[in-house]
Amino acid sequence: MSKLTAWLTPENDRKRKIRAIAFTVLIAVLLTVVCIYCAGEYGFALFVITPLFIGICPVIIYGKKKPITRSDAFYIGSLTLLFYCFAMMLFALEGLICIIMALPFAFFLVWIGSVIGYEVISKKPKGGAPTIIALLFIIPVFSFIEKDSAPSITSVTTGIDIDASPEVVWKNVVEFPQLNEPTEFLFKTGVAYPINARIKGNGAGAIRYCNFTTGSFVEPITVWNEPKLLAFDVLEQPAPMKEINFWDVDAPHLHDYFVSKKGQFKLIALPNGNTRLEGTTWYYHRIKPEFYWRMWSNYIVHSIHNRVLKHIKANSERTNLQD
């Protein structure tokens, strides 16, 4: 341990900074591998404690032989986070879009970690090593503990008013032709989006296929109340996105971590003869903290809903005009 400490804290300021960052990135990547591939968990250990570690560790190492300020601490912590993100992409552990989604929360936690590291090394220099060792123990242990926690199901509802009767809208809800290429920036980043829908059969028990750019949602119909309600379960679903990376990334979170359970289209007849169409998706994800990732997933689901609802609206109103 003394030899490692001596190697990590040379007198040369630049070398000490480089080694502090490199050591932290190496350990953080190894801990990430343990969380994802050994514990199978994208949770608090990965998205909360690991960023804290990234903020704490390099500050303690770098500040061991040189007084530093709070701004110095945050700078070195932020630099370490960016190199960690680059390493995640370089070793095909994660893609660019997911990293961008995580960064706002990660920077906040790195800032907290840098403050903790600054306080430790400023007021209790000998407490630096035990703090780092404790985090090295807590992260993998916590990732195995939290893996058994059950996710909660969330529903997202999006609505649109259509200048057509429920009978006309219904025909365009059950199945719809090819959608135009998306104009939304979100869908140009690799996030999967719907391209058409087909149905085999009629009534409850029929199978609807909502085809996305990454594959098909297989949706057995559970309620066929024409022209008021079409409800379905989700039997199979494709990957939620195609990662942007130097390599072809097939991260574990692309499989069974964002799970759509069921959905429905509700058609409400309006007094003027038009239709209020509401699409609802019930889903869960096994990525924590839920409050943060739910903001992203709700936004994505709303965007998918809007793409489909606008397409149904255009087709229904076109049919209405032709009639």
Rank of each mutant, 00 (worst) to 15 (best):
T157R: 06
R276W: 00
V259A: 02
E243G: 00
T213K: 03
T24L: 01
A134V: 15
A20Y: 03
P151S: 10
Y292C: 04
K147P: 05
Y193M: 01
V115M: 14
K3P: 02
Y84P: 00
I287S: 04
C210S: 15
V33A: 11
Y299L: 14
L179Q: 13
G215V: 04
P238I: 01
L109M: 09
G113T: 08
K15N: 14
A20D: 06
T154W: 07
L26M: 13
E243N: 00
S71K: 10
F246Q: 06
I61T: 10
S316A: 15
S260Y: 05
I56A: 06
T5A: 15
F258A: 07
M1K: 11
Q237C: 04
H302F: 02
V34W: 07
P140D: 13
G40Y: 03
K228V: 00
N274L: 08
Q322W: 11
I139S: 03
P67C: 12
S316G: 10
W170G: 12
Y299V: 04
K15R: 12
A206N: 09
A134E: 14
N298V: 07
Y193R: 00
G77I: 02
E167W: 01
S78T: 13
I199Y: 06
F83K: 01
F217Y: 15
G40K: 08
P10M: 13
D148F: 10
L96V: 08
N306S: 12
G190C: 00
S122T: 15
P140Q: 07
H311V: 08
P151Y: 02
L96P: 03
A106R: 02
N306E: 14
Y118A: 04
A20I: 05
Y292S: 07
S143L: 09
S2K: 14
L267G: 14
L186V: 03
L267H: 11
Y62I: 06
H302I: 08
V218W: 08
F291G: 05
A39M: 07
V48D: 13
R198G: 06
G190Q: 00
K124V: 10
Q237P: 03
A6P: 00
A6L: 12
A6E: 15
G77S: 06
T69Y: 01
I132D: 12
M241R: 00
Q264F: 07
L103Q: 09
F86A: 14
V156N: 08
I138L: 14
K200S: 15
T183C: 00
I132F: 04
R307I: 05
I132K: 01
C85S: 14
R208G: 08
M89A: 03
L90C: 10
L309V: 11
H311Y: 02
L235G: 03
Y292D: 11
I99G: 02
A6K: 12
V191W: 00
T213N: 08
K17F: 11
G117M: 04
N12F: 01
V169H: 09
F265L: 10
I56H: 07
R16V: 05
F105G: 13
S114N: 06
I162N: 13
A251S: 06
H305L: 09
V173G: 10
T222E: 10
S78K: 01
H302M: 10
E146T: 07
K124P: 02
R14W: 10
V48N: 11
E11S: 13
A102L: 05
F176Q: 12
L254N: 10
P140T: 06
A192N: 11
A204M: 02
T281F: 00
